[in-house]
Design a protein around this nucleic acid. Structure first.
Lengths: 214, 214
DNA sequence: ATCAAACATGCACGATGTGCATGCATGCAC
DNA sequence: GTGCATGCATGCACATCGTGCATGTTTGAT
């Protein structure tokens, strides 16, 4: 028996698996966007992605997971950008820059990302899944932060910082979506950037507020 | 037709409903703790609480929701304590004090709370629900903060602050639970208080960290 | 006493998620 | 290329889930 350490990468098999996963993800997003998350069955998604019903569950354990999977991509991009920032930058500045870079990309992935967020707004059943995805990414971000600071990965600062930043981004994005109920498509991308900026700045400067002057 | 504004409170009906809800919550927690969340069926929970299977779904829409419902009580307590703090205190100090007060209570509710957190640690299926509960309480906390500052409830600061503090508490509690794997029961309650303190202080002072000296 | 609304329950049914057995595709050794 | 072992897609069966609907009972107001 020979041990192959190639595990994961090359090979038709892996490529097909990734392609199928992406196809399912996109099918789920498309159908959910068209008919509403609750009105779509796993069977329909499987049909749209041209796989068997049973096979769907080899990739995702629920349709919610499939829809929300799109969000994970955005978070991974953010973490990658963060890792690419020069280490001379303070942590929160690096994170701020990373967010702005990712938001500026503007490729198809981001349209899906916003589409998914739109869906979550109108489908309460997706909220728990969304938060679970973010929490999972918190861990990865915490590791990146710890690495940057030459700290231990389970020190309190990296975890706290990662969780807090992800939370702040979630708040800002949701807030922006709430305000964008009316405008058909682009309710000022600039405003979104400004609010991200403002939120991170506030985190950096300290969240406290004085009591009433009385 | 006379409009009753009594809605909710008094009456045998409401009392019975609350009692049943509590009974179901406790039954779910007890069974899940004994046999593991995944191994318990809704039918068993209904039997333990002495209600019909169908009736269970009049109270909770899943067993996960029933188990995690215990956590909501803790958060509500926190918000109540926060509202009770004098308005002269800065926001984060008031929150810190509120947390410490709630943690010092030590009644049966807190044992259930810790029990629930233990369950969540070992049952990934509960994580999304837990986060959803916290997110729901974020909103309530944001309103309390906005009120205290005479600000609008959908200004950015109250939301950001509420979400951030809840997140920080979650991180600290989870971290404490992770470290408490070994010790059978009480792995230093004092340490928990200190870490809560430390985390909130850090939020108040600013989360940023300088880059590498070089 | 009476009545209407709220509630618990039983029933039926579509949908979900998983274990198991099977057959086909893939990658590897020769 | 031949053969083999492993992985993966699929079909099937089944337990559980969650909900709409109909019914009988309890509660609270008049």
């Amino acid at each position: 028996m020979i041990l192959r350490e190639d595990a994961g990468m090359s090979g038709r098999r892996e490529r097909k698996k990734l392609a199928t996963r992406a196809a399912v993800r996109e099918a789920a997003l498309r159908l959910a966007a068209r008919h509403g998350v609750e009105k779509v069955t796993v069977e329909q998604i499987a049909a749209e992605a041209d796989i068997a019903l049973r096979t769907f569950f080899n990739y995702f354990s629920s349709k919610e997971e499939a829809v929300v999977a799109t969000l994970a991509a955005g978070a991974e991009e953010l973490i990658a950008e963060f890792r690419a920032r020069p280490r001379t930058e303070p942590v929160l500045r690096a994170l701020r820059e990373a967010v702005l870079v990712v938001m500026a990309h503007g490729d198809a992935g981001r349209r899906d990302h916003l589409e998914a967020l739109h869906l979550i707004r109108r489908a309460p059943s997706l909220v728990p899944q969304q938060l679970a995805v973010l929490a999972a990414q918190e861990k990865a971000l915490a590791e990146a932060i710890a690495e940057r600071l030459d700290q231990d990965a389970d020190d309190i600062y990296p975890m706290l910082c990662a969780a807090t930043v992800m939370t702040a981004l979630r708040v800002v994005f949701n807030r922006w979506l709430d305000r964008a109920v009316e405008s058909t498509d682009l309710p000022s991308m600039t405003a979104l950037r400004e609010e991200v900026d403002e939120a991170i700045t506030e985190l950096a400067a300290g969240l406290d507020r004085p009591g009433r002057a009385r």
